[in-house]
Structure formats: structure tokens, C-alpha cells
Design a protein around this nucleic acid. Structure first.
Lengths: 259, 259
DNA sequence: CTTCATTGCGTATAAATTACGTAATAAAAA
DNA sequence: TTTTTATTACGTAATTTATACGCAATGAAG
């Protein structure tokens, strides 16, 4: 089985290619049907879920490593990516006997106590915003499933990964007041109700439907198109799109939004 | 000379006590005479300046390591401390020939190319807020001076330490809009002009003297005392102090300030 | 006792936020 | 065809908040 060879190679030699004691975990956000979602991996055999992650090779920057990991799991590149916290407590990445057994089995080798994979690892957390429909989830070497999960109904997760998701969410909610959000979460053209729902979902908070567009419009972040969307049995809402130059400027210089 | 022994021990054995490839750098802010200051170390022989920093031992959390480093340099503990960014680009900690020569000389040994101190290091940036007058700067093994320097007139610094200061400043300015600031930067009792100056200095921006107190007072963050301060040839300003419970609550839950 | 630089307090005005009414629209039901 | 229902679009009045700024009070020096 090819997987065993790959796995064995990873366990034996990965530490020669990568910066030791350091990993990256990505919280990949997506938005679909009024739900904020995170892309998770279900680990083979163990059943617990994990964040997409990986190691940093010697010639990569942290951001490059995160982009690579992100691309491997989603098929997308040049995503919005933000470093938000480092998780480095001793014991955060402690592996259970079951996990060590799993690793030994997959690699067909004995994982000794001093094996590099059991050493204390510091993980840099990045979060990414993606357009749900464009993501093609892809499993990695360790997992049997790669799926979107609702942020408010997370399954059992390994290590401190649930805490990492919560920290990412906190950082995202902080960002929403200071930088525009949505370019990477919505399709290119979207309606006012759609972006309104997105903001309500992320902030988990009601925002007045009639006042909401004013804020984005006066900042010039979105512009109205002459097209409408067919949504069935109701009045057709107009389509909007982001004003990219202003959006980029606001990303760089920051804005102040109050909801 | 005791220093040589210590230095040699550090160069030979430190990597056995600490998590490899990982360091911590602290941007220690202080405020004095309308100037925001950072505590810096002047390296022996080389002349360039560096941030107080160090390594993380196996049983420490990142925050504990930062507190330890902070206490070693300032004599203070339980300071306000905030992780703000990770600096991990390859080459960020590249040492010049002069630096390697210096290390070899101090330790009286040859520092080979594969010595651990020359390996790629990821540094976690923390910033701390301190009360200027309480800090007793203390040099470390590598430095001949430990001094406050104005943030807007930084000397030549090693590695990417100047960028780290700038990032810390950016994070601090971000924080000032969302969390109360001042408890760790001002003496216990302070006047309105003093805290007003602090905010103007950090934000590098004029704030109306007469409107400023209203914001902090309506949030209940500060309370007026029945004492006044003698400031010489002018009207004596009243003293204020922070409302600690509200301050702590605001730190945790966040506030929205507009200046 | 006048001058000067500063603090303390209040208030009029401007700006921004919020609440909410009502018309327009699309399709399904009557 | 007309009515009903659920939705979007847009405006405006009421309220709250922020800003500008006047002026008296203070403490010491000349």
C-alpha cells in the first residue's frame, strides 16, 4: 500500500525537512446557508477531528507554509490569510496511547518515547476566509474525511484544536470591526440580504436590515450593479459587488465599523 | 571571569534546556515625560541594540517564559503582557560575521556553522506595559547597557527587532480602542492631563482636552479622588484612579472607544 | 492685584446612529 | 384577475453621541 510507504517516510524523515518543534494550524472559514463553517479533517481510526495543519520547511516563511497547507486542503490559492495566535503550552500536543498506537500501525514501526512527533510542538494559528462553493476539500495522509462543520456544533477534536477554532473566531470577530470582510467569503456578486446575513452570522447578532447597507455604501466598499437576482416568490434583490481598490485600501489602512 | 564561564555554558548547553528554534522577544513599553519608551539592550562590543528576549524551557508556557524574561530585565512581575505576532521568516535571525566573532570570543570557543545558535529561529513577540518609574533596568549576559529609548527615535537594532517594535506599536494602538490602557503605564493616582497626554502620546494624535475625560468617566473606568496634585504655578488638578473591577471587566469583554 | 498658564465644567451645535413607516416587487393562492 | 404573502428598497424623524468651544476657577509669579 502506497500510503504506508509515504507514512513511514514521513515518520522517519519529515523532521529533516522541517523546522523542528514548530507546526501550523489553519482555521479555514467558509459560509453557506447562513452558517459559518470550518474545514476539518477526521483522523483515520481514531475518529477525532483535527484542523488542517502541517510543518514549515527550512526555506519557507510561515505565511508561505500556511498557504501551501491551505492549497493542499482546498485547491485554492491566494486566500485571505491571517496569523492570529501562537499555541505553545507544554502538553498542548500530548498524544494518547491510542494515537501513538495508530501512528505505529500506519507507519509499521515502533514510535519510541523520544520520537520527534511526540516532542513539544509550538503551533502558529492562521485563519483563512474562503468561498464555500469553490473549495474542494481533500483529505491528507492521516485522515479519512475532509468536511465542512458548523462552528457552533464542532465535533470532538484532538489536542487544543477546539480552543484554536475559538480563538480564530474571536480574532475574526475583532477583524470585522476594523477591516472589510466578505470578499473571500461571498461569491463575486451578492445581494444586500446575503452580505447582511453573513455579518449577522459571523457576529451572531441581529443587525438592522435597513440601516446595514448605509455603512458599507458610505465607506464605498460595495457598489450596486444593474442586475437583479431571481430568488423565486419575492421581489428580486439587486446584485452588488465589492469595490476592490477601496476594499484593499480599507484592508491595509483599517476602518471603524459599528454595528 | 565568571561571565565567560556562564557564556560558554550557555553556548554549549542552553539548547538542552530550551525548546529548539524558538525564542521570545519582549517589547516593554514605558511612558515618561510625554514620551513612549521601549526598554532596549545594547549588545557588548557590537554596539547594536536588541529587544529583551530569551528561550522557552521545556516545562514553561510561552506566557510564563515571557514573564520570566520580563522580570529579569525590569524587576517587576505580573505585568500586563500580550502576545501579538510571530516572526518566523527564514533569514530573520541571520547573524553577521562580526556577531559570530563576538560570540566565539565571549565563549572562548569556535562557533561552527551548524551550531544551534545559528539555526533558523522563530520568535514570538510579546508586548508589556510598565510603570516607568518602577522599572529597574538590568543588563543580561550579552549586553552592556539596558535603557529606555524613545519609540520614535530607535537606535540601530539587530535582526528584525525594529520591525518587531513597529508591529507591537501597531498592536498597542489597536488595543487602545478596544481595551482600557493605562493601569500599567501610569502611577496609581494620576491627573486627567496625565492620562490625556498618555493617550495622545500613544496614538500620536491630538485629542480634545475637554471632551476626553467624558469617555472614560461614562464608561466608569476611572474615578475622581478628593485629592489634588500640586503642580507648581498652576491650578491644582484633581487626582483620579482606575476603577479596577470595571477596568478588568473591560479588559476581558472589550470596549469601543472613539477618539 | 494683575498677568499667565493651566484645569474644570458646561452647553450649543453638528454628526451619526437608530427606529421604523411605507412603497415596490414577485409569485402563489383565491 | 385580484388578493395575499413574503420579501426588498428607500427615505425620514427621533434619538443619541460626538465635537467645538466659551469661560470661570486656580495657583503662583511679577
Amino acid at each position: 500500500m502506497n500510503n504506508e510507504k509515504e507514512f513511514r517516510d514521513f515518520m522517519l524523515h519529515a523532521h529533516e525537512r522541517f523546522v523542528k518543534h514548530l507546526s501550523i494550524d489553519c482555521v479555514i472559514f467558509g459560509y453557506h446557508e447562513r452558517q459559518l463553517k470550518v474545514l476539518l479533517l477526521k483522523l483515520k481510526t481514531l475518529g477525532a477531528w483535527a484542523l488542517p495543519g502541517g510543518f514549515v520547511s527550512f526555506d519557507e516563511t510561515l505565511a508561505q507554509a500556511a498557504q501551501r497547507i491551505l492549497e493542499e486542503r482546498t485547491g485554492l490559492n491566494k486566500l485571505f490569510l491571517q496569523q492570529f495566535h501562537v499555541f505553545g503550552d507544554p502538553g498542548r500536543s500530548h498524544r494518547t496511547a491510542a494515537e501513538i498506537g495508530f501512528l505505529s500501525g500506519q507507519a509499521n514501526m515502533v514510535v519510541a518515547n523520544d520520537h520527534w512527533i511526540l516532542a513539544r510542538t509550538i503551533s502558529v494559528g492562521f485563519y483563512a476566509l474562503t468561498e464555500f462553493s469553490k473549495v474542494i476539500p481533500k483529505v491528507d495522509l492521516f485522515s479519512e474525511l475532509c468536511e465542512w462543520r458548523d462552528v457552533d456544533r464542532l465535533p470532538k477534536m484532538i489536542f487544543d484544536h477546539r480552543q484554536i477554532v475559538n480563538e480564530a473566531l474571536k480574532a475574526l470577530r475583532m477583524q470585522i470591526y476594523h477591516q472589510p470582510i466578505g470578499y473571500n467569503l461571498l461569491p463575486e456578486n451578492f445581494t444586500l440580504p446575503e452580505i447582511h446575513d453573513l455579518y449577522e452570522t459571523i457576529l451572531d447578532k441581529k443587525i438592522d436590515r435597513r440601516n446595514f447597507p448605509k455603512k458599507l455604501l458610505t465607506l464605498g466598499l460595495i457598489k450596486k450593479l444593474n442586475k437583479q437576482k431571481k430568488i423565486g416568490a419575492h421581489r428580486s434583490p439587486f446584485l452588488y459587488k465589492f469595490n476592490k481598490p477601496r476594499y484593499e485600501k480599507a484592508l491595509k489602512e483599517g476602518i471603524v465599523l459599528v454595528f
